[in-house]
Design a protein around this nucleic acid. Structure first.
Lengths: 151, 151
DNA sequence: AAGTGTAGTTACACCCCTGTCATATAACAA
DNA sequence: TTGTTATATGACAGGGGTGTAACTACACTT
């Protein structure tokens, strides 16, 4: 099932992040989120996603759930990609117009709101990583149950 | 041209708020923003929008520009409609997840950020009314120039 | 080595939203 | 009243994003 050792398969990512396979596939084809461990190589091959990919997928899903359209999510992910691997604790991703910034405190966010003009999109990375981690634990659990059932 | 006295015609609203006629028409037909002074009554008739309508249109445009999808904007406008007519100074419209609320201070916004879960979209009504007022002044000006040209 | 399951690929269709263009008709001017 | 203008309406097309389903091919089991 390849859930943790080398990375995550497409369907695994779908279950963990809560998106449909059709969405994940579309995002891979349009270069929104590509499997950074192993790309697909024709029918029957397997995409393998990294944990960072998983985060990105979840961020996009959160944005979609909040009513943010895909092109905008694209921008958010681009900004995030430069930062990922770094510390995501207590970080918020703030989009204002065509600008993308990372904020490390509520005060920073307020400053951005005051200085800016128009609409701001704010994504708390804490909740994203938290959601992913719990879903991931659940996925591992049910996968092991399946192994038991198979044995 | 009916720009200020009784209200704003459809094309006027388009120019002032910066949306296409097709959008405004679609929004009227789908009950997103309906002309609250006079509804359309067949070909050749005139929709007449109020200033409050103008604000709503501009809010929607700002949300669209920020990548917020139309269904979400629909809900946000519903929240705003209950408050409009009241004081819009130093008010922020906050879309938190699938909920929409109005915040009257930075402190409230911070509370929302802390209490919420995931994604926020924040729009300052100050900037909206400011934009509308300047665009409106410009519209009146060019309209009067047109009158001069016609005379 | 054959068979079974899993996963990627393709084709098709649908809905939402917006653009273009033609048409109809009310509002207004001469 | 008559002609012109402004505006709403209608028909149509097109793109983005997603669902459904059939098909293909790899991987693993036995």
């Amino acid at each position: 099932m390849n859930t943790v050792s080398t990375g995550f398969s497409g369907p695994s990512v779908c279950r963990i992040a809560g998106v449909t396979y059709r969405q994940l596939d579309y995002w891979a084809r349009t270069n929104l989120v590509t499997p950074s461990v192993t790309a697909a190589q024709g029918s029957g091959s397997k995409r393998v996603y990294s944990y960072a990919d998983l985060i990105e997928v979840r961020v996009i899903k959160s944005l979609l759930d909040a009513g943010v359209a895909l092109p905008r999510a694209r921008q958010a992910v681009n900004c995030l990609r430069n930062q990922i691997g770094g510390d995501l604790k207590s970080v918020s991703l703030v989009l204002s117009g065509s600008n993308s910034v990372l904020a490390y405190s509520d005060g920073e966010i307020i400053d951005l709101l005051k200085g800016g003009h128009g609409v701001f999109n704010v994504i708390s990375m804490d909740s994203v990583t938290a959601d992913i981690d719990t879903s991931l634990a659940q996925e591992v659990e049910t996968t092991e149950n399946r192994r038991l059932a198979m044995a």
